[in-house]
């Protein structure tokens, strides 16, 4: 059975993400606010893209739409060729379950729940049998360097460790796209670079496309591409690789 009832992602040749003239409008008339205003964007499978921009520039709105948590008011968003704006709430949940992974600035782990169980959570919704679930979750934690910390709860872990658990949770399902919203925003520089190394590793070794919002230029420097948002529009696209 297709995880997306009747909406199987189309050919591999299509870009992973394709935004065409996407706008998100709140309110109406004179009170109208355009959080996004006609954004065009293409991201190919395997890319590592950083998104930068001041507060209110629309980058969070864009991330919510790209993460299928929200829908555009106007325009179209195709995820592997599937028009996301035509999916209902449950279909979008299934798309997130099977193709997306999330890493947040505030970690967003379940409190009073062990690291292992936090990582198992997406597998539970995927109906993975429990033995396989435990094994996969342990592997994921080992990959982020948290072997031995499986049974600690978030309150017993440092910020950097919590973010590693969150990354393990996001990648345990082998998603196509990992959305990271300021993943290093709450961490010191050393921890930040460790997290970036993890994300780079996922991108290179597991071919997971990474889309990351950040305020810090040295974090953005890890990306293949940096997209700047300003006033709800894509202002600028820089290829750091080309500069270096």
């Amino acid at each position: 059975m297709s995880p997306l009832d009747g909406v199987t992602p189309a050919a591999e040749s299509a870009p992973l993400i394709e935004l065409h003239q996407v706008s998100k409008i709140y309110g109406s008339g004179t009170a109208e606010v355009r959080a996004l205003d006609g954004v065009d964007l293409r991201i190919q499978e395997g890319e590592f893209v950083a998104v930068m921009g001041p507060s209110g520039s629309g980058k969070s709105t864009a991330m919510n739409i790209l993460g299928c948590l929200d829908t555009p008011t106007l325009g179209s968003y195709r995820f592997r060729g599937v028009p996301v704006e035509s999916l209902d709430r449950n279909q979008r949940a299934l798309l997130r379950r099977h193709y997306l992974g999330f890493v947040f600035q505030g970690f967003n782990l379940l409190n009073r729940t062990s690291a292992l169980e936090n990582v198992e959570l997406p597998l539970i919704y995927r109906r993975t049998p429990s033995a396989e679930r435990h094994a996969l979750a342990r592997q994921a934690l080992a990959m982020v360097g948290l072997t031995g910390w499986e049974h600690h709860t978030p309150s017993e872990l440092s910020g950097g460790q919590q973010q590693r658990v969150a990354i393990a949770r996001a990648m345990v399902t082998q998603p196509s796209l990992l959305l990271a919203d300021e993943p290093t925003g709450n961490l010191d520089t050393a921890r930040s670079h460790e997290i970036m190394e993890l994300l780079i590793g996922l991108n290179r070794e597991r071919a997971i496309t990474v889309l990351m919002v950040t305020h810090e230029a040295d974090m953005a420097a890890y990306a293949h591409r940096v997209i700047h948002f300003l006033d709800g529009r894509v202002a600028d696209v820089i290829q750091p690789g080309a500069e270096a």
Partner: peptide, 16 residues
């Protein structure tokens, strides 16, 4: 609420 948000974000269905 936050826990519910996390569950929904990682793909829990309404009925779940």
């Amino acid at each position: 609420t936050r826990e519910i948000g996390i569950r929904l974000a990682i793909g829990a269905l309404e009925r779940e």
